[in-house]
Design a protein around this nucleic acid. Structure first.
Lengths: 166, 166
DNA sequence: TTTTTAGGGCAGCCTTGTTGACTTTCCAAG
DNA sequence: CTTGGAAAGTCAACAAGGCTGCCCTAAAAA
Protein backbone atom coordinates (compact mmCIF):
# COMPACT_ATOMS: atom_id res chain seq x y z
CA UNK A 1 0.00 0.00 0.00
CA UNK A 2 2.17 2.84 1.06
CA UNK A 3 5.14 3.73 -1.01
CA UNK A 4 7.24 6.53 0.26
CA UNK A 5 9.57 6.66 -2.62
CA UNK A 6 12.16 4.57 -0.88
CA UNK A 7 14.25 2.12 -2.82
CA UNK A 8 13.34 -1.24 -1.37
CA UNK A 9 9.95 -2.52 -0.33
CA UNK A 10 10.68 -3.35 3.31
CA UNK A 11 11.22 0.30 4.15
CA UNK A 12 7.47 0.29 4.51
CA UNK A 13 7.62 -1.79 7.64
CA UNK A 14 7.60 1.43 9.60
CA UNK A 15 4.02 1.99 8.46
CA UNK A 16 2.50 -1.13 9.95
CA UNK A 17 -0.51 -0.77 12.23
CA UNK A 18 1.59 -1.92 15.15
CA UNK A 19 4.17 0.78 14.51
CA UNK A 20 1.46 3.37 14.22
CA UNK A 21 -0.13 2.25 17.45
CA UNK A 22 3.20 2.56 19.22
CA UNK A 23 3.49 6.07 17.87
CA UNK A 24 0.03 6.93 19.12
CA UNK A 25 0.78 5.70 22.61
CA UNK A 26 4.15 7.41 22.60
CA UNK A 27 2.38 10.70 21.93
CA UNK A 28 -0.04 10.04 24.75
CA UNK A 29 2.54 9.16 27.37
CA UNK A 30 5.06 11.75 26.26
CA UNK A 31 2.53 14.56 26.39
CA UNK A 32 1.86 13.69 30.00
CA UNK A 33 5.54 14.00 30.79
CA UNK A 34 5.73 17.16 28.77
CA UNK A 35 3.13 18.93 30.92
CA UNK A 36 3.98 17.38 34.28
CA UNK A 37 6.63 19.85 35.46
CA UNK A 38 4.82 23.08 34.60
CA UNK A 39 1.63 21.62 36.07
CA UNK A 40 3.33 21.30 39.43
CA UNK A 41 4.43 24.92 39.40
CA UNK A 42 1.03 26.11 38.22
CA UNK A 43 -0.74 24.23 40.97
CA UNK A 44 1.17 26.25 43.58
CA UNK A 45 -0.18 29.45 42.05
CA UNK A 46 -3.71 28.08 41.63
CA UNK A 47 -3.43 28.22 37.89
CA UNK A 48 -3.95 25.58 35.23
CA UNK A 49 -2.61 24.67 31.84
CA UNK A 50 -4.81 27.25 30.19
CA UNK A 51 -2.97 29.99 32.06
CA UNK A 52 0.34 28.55 31.02
CA UNK A 53 -0.60 28.54 27.36
CA UNK A 54 -1.76 32.15 27.48
CA UNK A 55 1.39 33.28 29.26
CA UNK A 56 3.58 31.39 26.84
CA UNK A 57 2.17 32.98 23.72
CA UNK A 58 1.92 36.48 25.18
CA UNK A 59 5.59 36.18 26.01
CA UNK A 60 6.41 34.94 22.55
CA UNK A 61 4.74 37.87 20.87
CA UNK A 62 4.19 40.78 23.25
CA UNK A 63 1.37 43.11 22.27
CA UNK A 64 -0.65 40.53 20.39
CA UNK A 65 -4.40 41.03 20.42
CA UNK A 66 -6.97 38.87 22.13
CA UNK A 67 -8.28 37.73 18.77
CA UNK A 68 -4.88 36.60 17.61
CA UNK A 69 -4.32 34.73 20.83
CA UNK A 70 -7.68 33.03 20.44
CA UNK A 71 -6.75 31.79 17.00
CA UNK A 72 -3.35 30.54 18.13
CA UNK A 73 -4.78 28.70 21.11
CA UNK A 74 -7.80 27.41 19.24
CA UNK A 75 -10.30 28.22 21.97
CA UNK A 76 -13.30 30.52 22.13
CA UNK A 77 -12.92 34.04 23.38
CA UNK A 78 -15.24 33.31 26.27
CA UNK A 79 -13.00 30.50 27.35
CA UNK A 80 -9.86 32.57 27.02
CA UNK A 81 -11.48 35.50 28.72
CA UNK A 82 -11.90 33.78 32.04
CA UNK A 83 -8.26 32.83 32.15
CA UNK A 84 -7.09 36.22 30.97
CA UNK A 85 -9.21 38.02 33.53
CA UNK A 86 -7.58 36.22 36.43
CA UNK A 87 -4.12 36.86 35.03
CA UNK A 88 -4.87 40.57 34.71
CA UNK A 89 -6.41 40.75 38.17
CA UNK A 90 -3.36 39.06 39.60
CA UNK A 91 -1.09 41.53 37.87
CA UNK A 92 0.70 39.08 35.59
CA UNK A 93 -0.72 40.41 32.34
CA UNK A 94 -1.44 43.94 31.20
CA UNK A 95 -4.12 44.70 28.63
CA UNK A 96 -3.77 47.95 26.68
CA UNK A 97 -6.48 49.40 24.46
CA UNK A 98 -5.40 49.60 20.82
CA UNK A 99 -4.12 52.95 19.55
CA UNK A 100 -5.47 52.69 16.03
CA UNK A 101 -8.44 50.45 16.69
CA UNK A 102 -9.86 51.01 20.15
CA UNK A 103 -11.78 47.76 20.01
CA UNK A 104 -8.58 45.79 20.23
CA UNK A 105 -6.75 44.84 23.41
CA UNK A 106 -3.01 44.32 23.23
CA UNK A 107 -1.55 41.94 25.76
CA UNK A 108 1.76 42.17 27.61
CA UNK A 109 3.39 40.35 30.49
CA UNK A 110 4.24 42.41 33.55
CA UNK A 111 7.46 41.86 35.49
CA UNK A 112 5.68 39.31 37.63
CA UNK A 113 4.24 37.66 34.54
CA UNK A 114 7.65 37.35 32.99
CA UNK A 115 8.99 35.83 36.17
CA UNK A 116 6.36 33.11 36.15
CA UNK A 117 6.89 32.58 32.45
CA UNK A 118 10.57 31.97 33.01
CA UNK A 119 9.89 29.51 35.81
CA UNK A 120 7.41 27.55 33.72
CA UNK A 121 9.45 27.53 30.56
CA UNK A 122 12.62 26.61 32.32
CA UNK A 123 10.96 23.60 33.91
CA UNK A 124 9.63 22.47 30.57
CA UNK A 125 12.87 23.19 28.77
CA UNK A 126 14.84 21.18 31.28
CA UNK A 127 12.89 18.07 30.42
CA UNK A 128 13.03 18.77 26.72
CA UNK A 129 16.76 19.38 26.95
CA UNK A 130 17.30 16.08 28.73
CA UNK A 131 15.25 14.26 26.13
CA UNK A 132 17.08 15.97 23.28
CA UNK A 133 20.44 15.19 24.76
CA UNK A 134 19.53 11.56 25.35
CA UNK A 135 18.24 11.12 21.81
CA UNK A 136 20.80 13.16 19.91
CA UNK A 137 20.59 15.75 17.13
CA UNK A 138 19.57 13.35 14.38
CA UNK A 139 16.66 12.06 16.42
CA UNK A 140 15.63 15.61 17.27
CA UNK A 141 15.44 16.52 13.62
CA UNK A 142 13.19 13.55 12.98
CA UNK A 143 11.08 14.35 16.01
CA UNK A 144 10.40 17.84 14.67
CA UNK A 145 9.69 16.59 11.16
CA UNK A 146 7.07 14.12 12.30
CA UNK A 147 5.40 16.59 14.65
CA UNK A 148 5.20 19.22 11.95
CA UNK A 149 3.65 16.74 9.56
CA UNK A 150 1.06 15.89 12.18
CA UNK A 151 -0.21 19.45 12.71
CA UNK A 152 -3.34 20.79 11.12
CA UNK A 153 -2.27 23.15 8.33
CA UNK A 154 -4.06 25.95 10.10
CA UNK A 155 -2.09 25.45 13.26
CA UNK A 156 1.13 24.96 11.37
CA UNK A 157 0.78 28.54 10.23
CA UNK A 158 1.13 29.79 13.77
CA UNK A 159 4.01 27.46 14.41
CA UNK A 160 5.97 28.62 11.41
CA UNK A 161 5.34 32.23 12.29
CA UNK A 162 8.10 31.81 14.81
CA UNK A 163 11.32 33.29 13.65
CA UNK A 164 13.09 30.16 12.63
CA UNK A 165 16.48 29.23 13.79
CA UNK A 166 17.68 27.03 10.99
CA UNK B 1 22.23 27.48 12.33
CA UNK B 2 21.36 24.25 13.93
CA UNK B 3 23.81 21.76 12.85
CA UNK B 4 22.28 18.43 13.39
CA UNK B 5 24.56 15.91 11.94
CA UNK B 6 27.92 17.51 12.55
CA UNK B 7 30.72 15.59 14.14
CA UNK B 8 32.44 18.27 16.19
CA UNK B 9 31.37 20.18 19.30
CA UNK B 10 28.90 22.52 17.61
CA UNK B 11 26.49 19.62 17.59
CA UNK B 12 25.30 21.17 20.81
CA UNK B 13 23.61 23.92 18.88
CA UNK B 14 20.54 21.72 18.86
CA UNK B 15 20.25 22.40 22.58
CA UNK B 16 19.82 26.16 22.37
CA UNK B 17 16.87 27.73 24.12
CA UNK B 18 15.38 28.67 20.76
CA UNK B 19 15.54 25.10 19.57
CA UNK B 20 13.97 23.89 22.76
CA UNK B 21 11.19 26.43 22.49
CA UNK B 22 10.45 25.27 18.98
CA UNK B 23 10.25 21.74 20.27
CA UNK B 24 7.85 22.78 22.99
CA UNK B 25 5.55 24.51 20.55
CA UNK B 26 5.78 21.63 18.12
CA UNK B 27 4.49 19.35 20.87
CA UNK B 28 1.66 21.72 21.63
CA UNK B 29 0.46 22.13 18.06
CA UNK B 30 1.04 18.53 17.07
CA UNK B 31 -0.93 17.22 20.00
CA UNK B 32 -3.88 19.26 18.87
CA UNK B 33 -3.68 17.71 15.42
CA UNK B 34 -3.21 14.32 16.99
CA UNK B 35 -6.52 14.48 18.86
CA UNK B 36 -8.56 16.42 16.31
CA UNK B 37 -9.87 13.53 14.23
CA UNK B 38 -10.97 11.24 17.06
CA UNK B 39 -12.52 14.24 18.81
CA UNK B 40 -14.83 14.78 15.86
CA UNK B 41 -16.01 11.19 15.95
CA UNK B 42 -16.42 11.23 19.72
CA UNK B 43 -18.53 14.37 19.59
CA UNK B 44 -21.09 12.58 17.43
CA UNK B 45 -21.47 9.93 20.12
CA UNK B 46 -21.50 12.46 22.98
CA UNK B 47 -18.25 11.16 24.32
CA UNK B 48 -15.00 12.89 25.14
CA UNK B 49 -11.31 12.15 25.10
CA UNK B 50 -11.58 10.37 28.41
CA UNK B 51 -13.83 7.76 26.81
CA UNK B 52 -11.41 7.34 23.96
CA UNK B 53 -8.50 6.70 26.28
CA UNK B 54 -10.43 4.10 28.25
CA UNK B 55 -11.56 2.33 25.09
CA UNK B 56 -8.08 2.37 23.66
CA UNK B 57 -6.44 0.68 26.62
CA UNK B 58 -9.23 -1.82 27.21
CA UNK B 59 -8.80 -2.84 23.61
CA UNK B 60 -5.07 -3.10 23.98
CA UNK B 61 -5.32 -5.43 26.94
CA UNK B 62 -8.74 -7.05 27.24
CA UNK B 63 -9.63 -8.16 30.74
CA UNK B 64 -7.50 -5.63 32.55
CA UNK B 65 -8.76 -4.51 35.94
CA UNK B 66 -10.05 -1.08 36.84
CA UNK B 67 -7.02 -0.52 39.04
CA UNK B 68 -4.61 -1.28 36.24
CA UNK B 69 -6.44 1.03 33.91
CA UNK B 70 -6.31 3.79 36.51
CA UNK B 71 -2.57 3.49 36.78
CA UNK B 72 -2.09 3.50 33.01
CA UNK B 73 -4.30 6.53 32.52
CA UNK B 74 -2.98 8.36 35.54
CA UNK B 75 -6.37 9.49 36.81
CA UNK B 76 -8.25 8.81 40.01
CA UNK B 77 -10.62 5.90 40.19
CA UNK B 78 -13.51 8.25 40.80
CA UNK B 79 -12.75 10.08 37.62
CA UNK B 80 -12.43 6.92 35.59
CA UNK B 81 -15.55 5.51 37.14
CA UNK B 82 -17.88 8.10 35.70
CA UNK B 83 -16.56 7.51 32.20
CA UNK B 84 -16.62 3.75 32.59
CA UNK B 85 -20.18 3.79 33.88
CA UNK B 86 -21.48 5.55 30.77
CA UNK B 87 -19.58 3.16 28.52
CA UNK B 88 -21.06 0.18 30.34
CA UNK B 89 -24.57 1.64 30.30
CA UNK B 90 -24.23 2.26 26.58
CA UNK B 91 -23.14 -1.31 26.01
CA UNK B 92 -19.64 -0.60 24.73
CA UNK B 93 -17.80 -2.08 27.66
CA UNK B 94 -18.48 -5.15 29.74
CA UNK B 95 -17.34 -5.44 33.35
CA UNK B 96 -16.93 -8.93 34.76
CA UNK B 97 -16.40 -9.68 38.43
CA UNK B 98 -13.05 -11.36 39.06
CA UNK B 99 -13.03 -15.15 39.38
CA UNK B 100 -10.28 -15.36 41.95
CA UNK B 101 -10.75 -11.99 43.58
CA UNK B 102 -14.34 -10.87 43.55
CA UNK B 103 -13.34 -7.30 44.37
CA UNK B 104 -11.82 -6.90 40.96
CA UNK B 105 -13.67 -5.93 37.79
CA UNK B 106 -12.22 -7.09 34.51
CA UNK B 107 -13.00 -4.93 31.51
CA UNK B 108 -13.76 -5.99 27.95
CA UNK B 109 -15.04 -4.27 24.83
CA UNK B 110 -18.32 -5.53 23.41
CA UNK B 111 -18.86 -5.83 19.67
CA UNK B 112 -20.14 -2.27 19.60
CA UNK B 113 -17.17 -1.13 21.67
CA UNK B 114 -14.75 -2.73 19.26
CA UNK B 115 -16.50 -1.06 16.35
CA UNK B 116 -16.08 2.37 17.89
CA UNK B 117 -12.51 1.57 18.81
CA UNK B 118 -11.72 0.72 15.21
CA UNK B 119 -13.30 3.92 13.96
CA UNK B 120 -11.36 6.06 16.43
CA UNK B 121 -8.07 4.32 15.95
CA UNK B 122 -8.33 4.30 12.21
CA UNK B 123 -8.89 8.06 12.16
CA UNK B 124 -5.90 8.62 14.37
CA UNK B 125 -3.75 6.14 12.51
CA UNK B 126 -4.54 7.77 9.19
CA UNK B 127 -3.04 11.02 10.36
CA UNK B 128 -0.08 9.31 11.94
CA UNK B 129 0.47 7.30 8.79
CA UNK B 130 0.47 10.43 6.66
CA UNK B 131 2.93 12.12 8.99
CA UNK B 132 5.18 9.06 9.07
CA UNK B 133 5.13 8.76 5.32
CA UNK B 134 5.90 12.44 4.85
CA UNK B 135 8.79 12.33 7.29
CA UNK B 136 10.29 8.95 6.44
CA UNK B 137 11.56 6.02 8.51
CA UNK B 138 14.64 7.76 9.85
CA UNK B 139 12.63 10.66 11.16
CA UNK B 140 10.13 8.28 12.70
CA UNK B 141 12.86 6.53 14.62
CA UNK B 142 14.02 9.87 15.98
CA UNK B 143 10.49 10.89 16.81
CA UNK B 144 10.02 7.80 18.93
CA UNK B 145 13.37 8.17 20.64
CA UNK B 146 12.69 11.72 21.75
CA UNK B 147 9.16 10.94 22.93
CA UNK B 148 10.37 7.99 24.94
CA UNK B 149 13.04 10.11 26.57
CA UNK B 150 10.40 12.66 27.51
CA UNK B 151 8.12 10.25 29.40
CA UNK B 152 8.08 9.96 33.15
CA UNK B 153 9.80 6.69 34.03
CA UNK B 154 6.61 5.50 35.65
CA UNK B 155 4.62 6.00 32.51
CA UNK B 156 7.35 4.55 30.36
CA UNK B 157 6.74 1.29 32.16
CA UNK B 158 3.25 1.06 30.74
CA UNK B 159 4.49 2.03 27.33
CA UNK B 160 7.15 -0.62 27.23
CA UNK B 161 4.72 -3.22 28.45
CA UNK B 162 3.42 -3.30 24.91
CA UNK B 163 4.64 -6.22 22.91
CA UNK B 164 7.27 -4.58 20.80
CA UNK B 165 7.28 -4.81 17.10
CA UNK B 166 10.84 -4.22 16.12
C1' DT C 1 -26.84 59.32 10.36
C1' DT C 2 -28.11 54.77 10.64
C1' DT C 3 -27.06 50.06 10.09
C1' DT C 4 -23.93 46.31 10.01
C1' DT C 5 -19.80 44.07 11.52
C1' DA C 6 -15.96 43.02 14.66
C1' DG C 7 -13.72 42.92 19.28
C1' DG C 8 -14.49 41.90 23.65
C1' DG C 9 -17.06 40.83 28.35
C1' DC C 10 -20.43 38.37 31.36
C1' DA C 11 -23.60 34.42 32.60
C1' DG C 12 -24.48 29.80 32.65
C1' DC C 13 -23.89 24.84 31.05
C1' DC C 14 -21.13 20.42 30.50
C1' DT C 15 -17.14 17.37 30.71
C1' DT C 16 -13.73 15.55 33.33
C1' DG C 17 -10.50 16.23 36.60
C1' DT C 18 -10.28 16.29 42.00
C1' DT C 19 -11.16 14.69 47.44
C1' DG C 20 -14.10 12.58 50.81
C1' DA C 21 -17.00 9.04 52.66
C1' DC C 22 -19.00 4.42 52.01
C1' DT C 23 -19.55 -0.83 50.75
C1' DT C 24 -17.85 -5.24 49.69
C1' DT C 25 -14.31 -8.55 49.60
C1' DC C 26 -10.13 -10.56 50.94
C1' DC C 27 -6.58 -11.89 54.03
C1' DA C 28 -3.98 -12.19 58.23
C1' DA C 29 -3.69 -12.16 63.40
C1' DG C 30 -5.61 -13.31 67.43
C1' DC D 1 -13.72 -18.51 63.79
C1' DT D 2 -13.89 -13.89 64.03
C1' DT D 3 -12.22 -9.58 63.69
C1' DG D 4 -9.70 -5.75 61.87
C1' DG D 5 -7.30 -3.71 58.32
C1' DA D 6 -6.24 -3.13 53.43
C1' DA D 7 -7.73 -3.14 48.68
C1' DA D 8 -11.23 -2.61 44.89
C1' DG D 9 -14.88 -0.16 43.46
C1' DT D 10 -19.13 3.14 43.85
C1' DC D 11 -21.54 7.50 44.97
C1' DA D 12 -21.53 12.59 46.09
C1' DA D 13 -19.97 17.01 45.68
C1' DC D 14 -16.69 20.44 44.06
C1' DA D 15 -13.28 22.96 40.65
C1' DA D 16 -11.12 24.02 36.16
C1' DG D 17 -11.69 25.08 31.74
C1' DG D 18 -13.90 23.90 27.60
C1' DC D 19 -18.54 25.50 25.21
C1' DT D 20 -22.95 28.54 23.44
C1' DG D 21 -25.78 32.51 24.03
C1' DC D 22 -26.50 37.26 24.82
C1' DC D 23 -24.92 41.96 25.30
C1' DC D 24 -22.09 46.35 24.84
C1' DT D 25 -18.94 49.42 22.36
C1' DA D 26 -16.21 50.93 18.48
C1' DA D 27 -15.47 51.02 13.69
C1' DA D 28 -16.87 50.76 9.00
C1' DA D 29 -20.30 50.85 5.41
C1' DA D 30 -24.65 52.27 3.44
Amino acid sequence: MADTGAPGGETLLFLTDEQLRKGIEAMFFAYRGFTADPDRILAKHDYGRAHHRAIHFINREPGLTVTTLISVLGVTKQSLNRVLRTLIEDGLVESRVGKRDKRERHLFLTEAGEALERALTEAQRARMRAAYRAAGPQAVAGFRQVLEAMMDPNLRRHYQMLKDDA
